[in-house]
Design a binder for these strands. Structure first.
Lengths: 248, 248
DNA sequence: CCTGCTATGTGCGGTAACCCTCGTATGCTG
DNA sequence: CAGCATACGAGGGTTACCGCACATAGCAGG
């Protein structure tokens, strides 16, 4: 496996100090994560945690009437299965792959061992959990106050940040399911974005031509999530405060 | 201070084993939490964590244009300031008291000491954080899919669960700000609830007359939050799994 | 008891997003 | 290359919520 598919494609794994990384590396299992695969069912017990490298996964809630909407997305910046170390072992939401790709998984027991060492891995996981909480919070705010167009832009940008290229492979219907809106709403908004020259698309493929254009149409929620994620996790390896702050 | 105002009015503090409770008890400081008080400013550093007993606090996000909406509420079932032990030390949201009352606070440093013992307190805090995440998630779902009336019912029920009586002291305007909707929308929905005999209200006071009536009008979100909170935290003292699960 | 502030009630036009339906065309598959 | 599933586009009626403007009514302070 070449470096483009190695574990350190995942930002959390990459942020581990060498010693900690080598301790878990033998137990990291490369797995394919095809489009549509359900990693966790609502209220299902977790056997593994997943560190995506090229795949992107949606945590979403399916309502009694069948409608659903995304709570948060997880790609190479994060990990799936935080309810393991939070103590609940499951959540009321599902986790479904919406951009096929790869990731590494680790057995639940091994992750808990690492977590209980109360070292860098624990700090990283907890900080990631907080970043995720911010993402969920902004989803809530965004759902209340912002237009479908703004939400589409936010969502495209967040997804784009998790991919190496500027091409997303997905249908408008899929995006509509993620955002919990009608497909026609996405068609309209995407049409306007194409008209503006920010994106171009054809049957299941969306190319982003002008990132900053999308950013001007997105609501502040995108920036809040990015900024908070950066604050909590970026350059985390360099920051002494990662450990020291926990004892202050 | 009588038992009706003691620290074990807070469910998290009450769930601590005797030994752990006595270790922190001397450091718990009873504080008044009057309506409107801002406990944490957006991105402000935390000096204390707060365990409300009779007060209720809203974590909410204020947008650039001044509009705001609640992300989650915290009362005697929880604690404010989880970003301390999550490692971020702050969040992009504010924490404002919306039902005046009392609570206990603990210095940040002392809470971190307890957290780093990796004992029951840590398990409790992490589990509570997960319950809070579920609450935020359902807020997101609810904002997307449910009517103002459903959301009002959900919100009244969640608030009611944190109070000893069936009377809420708050204006429709306040509720509107919490839910991020127009005041008139609340007037209408509340009018219907009063017509149905579920509540009765007068200028700043709402009495709930028929809980189960409200439950029938609320969306599933209320039940999901309650159930998950119960699963994660109820009778936590009796459950051996609280510690054992973390080593499994 | 009066005054004034503030909470609540109401009405009206505007609009974004809904629901449903159907037409069109793209790109895979045999 | 032909056939077909499915992704996208478009139209029309409906509704929930918004924004504003203003009327009424409860309650506190003088």
């Amino acid at each position: 496996m070449d470096s483009s598919q190695g574990p350190n494609q995942n930002h959390l794994l990459a942020a581990l100090p060498t010693a900690e990384f080598h301790r878990i590396a033998p137990h990291l299992e490369l797995v394919a994560m095809p489009l549509g695969e359900v990693l966790y069912e609502s209220s299902g017990q977790l056997q593994h945690v997943y560190f995506p490298t090229t795949a992107i996964v949606s945590m979403h809630y399916v309502m009694e009437n069948g409608a659903s909407s995304e709570i948060a997305g997880v790609g190479n910046e994060g990990v799936l299965g935080i309810s393991l170390f939070m103590g609940g072992n499951t959540t009321p939401s599902r986790a479904v792959v919406y951009t096929g790709g790869y990731g590494y998984r680790l057995k639940a027991r091994l992750l808990m061992q690492e977590f209980n060492r109360a070292d860098i891995m624990q700090r990283l996981l907890l900080r990631y959990a907080q970043a995720l909480m911010t993402q969920i919070s902004q989803t809530a705010v965004c759902n209340r106050h912002h237009s479908v167009e703004q939400q589409l832009c936010r969502w495209l940008l967040l997804t784009l940040d998790r991919l190496p290229s500027n091409e997303l492979v997905m249908t408008q219907e899929l995006i509509a399911n993620m955002l919990g809106v009608r497909r026609e709403g996405i068609t309209e908004a995407a049409g306007r974005m194409q008209q503006a020259g920010f994106i171009s698309y054809r049957r299941g493929h969306i190319s982003v031509l002008d990132r900053s254009g999308l950013e001007t149409r997105a609501c502040e929620c995108y920036a809040v999530v990015k900024k908070e994620h950066h604050r909590l996790l970026c350059d985390v390896r360099n920051r002494q405060e990662l450990l020291s702050s926990s004892h202050s």
